[in-house]
Structure formats: structure tokens, C-alpha cells
């Protein structure tokens, strides 16, 4: 399998708060599912920001699908973002628009022809199991459903990689299982998924590869869940 993402000795340092990531290197293959874990402040969110080019590394190189942090110009970042899907813990939906308008928005602002938006939104809603909620407002949905809308929006531009920052952090056990199942289905269709989580039981049950960060350093990279339990 070919790598879709590579970090080479990446360090990220902030002027005020100091080192957030230290000499981190790893690769992710096409269609892989990867967990990212570690205590608060260990650098998970910083890593996701580097992967979406919201931040640039202080040293080292981030390479995502041929886009390199060393050479990519700021004005070309949108081109990369259109190939990524990003999901957050707090959903970040537009609360004054319907579910379908939220998803259509992502398509409209990236220049999708108006004629194909309706059909695409319908397919995405079916994929995330919310076909019947198209005209609902976000506040009428449960947390799990809102996260599904956010995932549908993230999938709007057919990303090769989905970055999920604590997507189940605000959800109950049942909704969490549902979201994880959805992410697995998406992954099965070929989209690589990187999911940051505090929930170690999710990682242990899945058997997927995980990276564990500790104070900015890559502490573990593998699939051995026993290592995880040791740190619990």
C-alpha cells in the first residue's frame, strides 16, 4: 500500500507555550484507520492542525497526498483541504440552517455546480443514516445525529483522508458506537481515517493501529492494545 501521509521528524513550537510536538515521524497508508491518543495537551490537536495545514511545523516536513509543508503556498492550501474531511468534537454546524443546507454549503463554497448539489446531499444523508432529517434544524437533532451531519459535510468533497478530532467526546456510549461504525464504513470505502480520542476502550476493541503521544513525543506506534492498558 502507498503512503498518503508522512511526517518526517516534525517539531512544532509555539512562541508562548513552547514545544507542542517533538521529533514526530510516522506514515499512514492509503485507506488505513488510525487512532491518535494521549493525555490532554499531549499534542493530538496540534498534530491534526499540522495535517490540515492550519499550522506549519517549526522543523521537519509534513507531507499529505503530495502536498508538502516545505513547499505548499498558503493560497494553495484550499486545494488540499478539498481533499480532506475534518470533524470536531463540537460538530461546528451552522445552527441557523437545515441539515441539508449545512451539507450543501460545503459543496457550494467549493464550486460544485448547483445542478449536482441536491443529489449529492441526498446520497450523503443516506450514507450517514439521516435521509429523513434533511429539513431538520441542527438543534432538533441528538448529539450523535449532529455529528453524523458534520461527517456528511466532511465527506462532501470525497476526501481521501478524514481527520476526526475527538468526534465522540460529547456523545454517550450508544452514539459513540454508532459514529465509530459509520467511520469504519467510510474507511471500508477507501477513505483513510485518523481519529483522535481519549476513549481507550474504543482503541482496544478495534484492534486498529494507534499512535500514543505524550508531552509532544510519539510514545507508541503499533497495534498492541496491552501497551495501552499499561498507560491507562
Amino acid at each position: 500500500m502507498s503512503g498518503v501521509l508522512r511526517l518526517d521528524d516534525v517539531t512544532k513550537e509555539y512562541p508562548r507555550t513552547g514545544v507542542a510536538l517533538k521529533n514526530v515521524s510516522f506514515t499512514v497508508d492509503k485507506g488505513e484507520f488510525l487512532f491518535l491518543t494521549g493525555p490532554s495537551g499531549s499534542g493530538k490537536s496540534t498534530l491534526l492542525k499540522l495535517l490540515s495545514f492550519a499550522e506549519r511545523p517549526t522543523a521537519g516536513e509534513v507531507k499529505v497526498s503530495g502536498f508538502s509543508s516545505a513547499t505548499l503556498r498558503d493560497r494553495d492550501i484550499p486545494q488540499l483541504r478539498r481533499r480532506l474531511g475534518i470533524v470536531f468534537q463540537d460538530f461546528r454546524l451552522l445552527t441557523d440552517r437545515t441539515v441539508e443546507a449545512n451539507i450543501a454549503f460545503a459543496l457550494e463554497v467549493t464550486g460544485t455546480p448547483a445542478s449536482s448539489i441536491g443529489g449529492k446531499v441526498g446520497r450523503l444523508l443516506t450514507q450517514v443514516g439521516l435521509a429523513s432529517k434533511a429539513t431538520s434544524m441542527p438543534h432538533e437533532l441528538s448529539g450523535g445525529e449532529q455529528q453524523r451531519v458534520a461527517i456528511a459535510r466532511a465527506l462532501a468533497n470525497d476526501p481521501f483522508l478524514l481527520l476526526a478530532d475527538e468526534p465522540t467526546g460529547n456523545l454517550d456510549e450508544r452514539a459513540t458506537r454508532g459514529i465509530l461504525q459509520l467511520l469504519r464504513e467510510i474507511n471500508a470505502l477507501g477513505t483513510a481515517v485518523i481519529m483522535a480520542t481519549h476513549d481507550l476502550s474504543l482503541i482496544m476493541r478495534s484492534g486498529y493501529r494507534y499512535l500514543e503521544l505524550d508531552r509532544g513525543s510519539l510514545h507508541y506506534d503499533g497495534t498492541d492494545a496491552r501497551t495501552l492498558s499499561r498507560h491507562q
Binding site: P78, R82, I86, R92, L94, A106, V109, T110, R153
Partner: peptide, 17 residues
């Protein structure tokens, strides 16, 4: 601000935002 954030998130160009 939320709209701007989402536009950037999904890859709208700055000019478009």
C-alpha cells in the same frame, strides 16, 4: 465567524470567503 471557519475547513478560497 463559524461560517468563515467552515468555509476554510472545506477548502473555500480566501477570495471566495
Amino acid at each position: 465567524a463559524r461560517e468563515i471557519e467552515i468555509m476554510r475547513l472545506v477548502g473555500a478560497t480566501n477570495a471566495f470567503v
